[in-house]
Amino acid sequence: MTEPVISASDLSLTFQTGDGPVHALKDVSLDIAKGDFVSFIGPSGCGKTTFLRCMADLEHPTAGTITVNGVTPEAARKARAYGYVFQAAGLYPWRTIGGNIRLPLEIMGYDKADQSARVKRVLELVDLAGFEKKYPWQLSGGMQQRASIARALAFDADILLMDEPFGALDEIVRDHLNEQLLALWAKTEKTIAFVTHSIPEAVYLSTKIVVMSPRPGRITDVIDSPLPRERPLEIRDTPEFLEIAHRVREGLKAGHSYD
């Protein structure tokens, strides 16, 4: 067994608010191995996004430890260890799609020729070749989100952190993007942490499903998916798939019985 890529043990994060402390995360422990596709699922307030933000050094845990690639999240962030995809595409309206993907490369100081080569490569990876010169408003919501994934892939981080990236898209587009994301994952061999509130999405995509519940935010179940890595959309009608989905649903229910 190799070193886990992301390792959290007894992680807690408490926000101090006017109404007293809010336990966003309480004693969360989890290991993510290299090449895993891990989904975090749970109702809002269960800390799944907070956990992801802790990995990205966007939030700072108040207790416990977390390492990313064996170092602190801050060191990992500065080493550009991960690409982060937000709920909204967040493309700059004043930059073309190519210009948006070039943004991290400019900041990280890649030379011009390398920038162009990388932009071209990641656009092909997300099936947006030929859209480099277009502006964000000229693309559909799904295409914009693909461009934002391309932006996160451009600088070769081994880890992809995705915070409900398809949450704002309709079901049909979402299915299509899920399929593409799996293909992308197979091709790039990244480690992906993926926050969602859709059970089918979590089961379809993941090798590992982490079920969380709120107040305090904690992990109630970790399911290692027996599904093969190769997954056509039809797999969602198989008994294995439905069985995992059922277990996720039970896990979510168990979490709720605490209120």
């Binding site: 966007l58 962030r77 550009r80 937000f86 709920q87 967040g90 943004l103 900041i107 990280m108």
Partner: peptide
């Protein structure tokens, strides 16, 4: 979100 994004890139305040 846009500020967080730049933070994940390790952008300097000047950038």
């Amino acid at each position: 979100m846009q500020l967080d994004l730049l933070r994940t890139y390790g952008a300097s305040p000047r950038q």
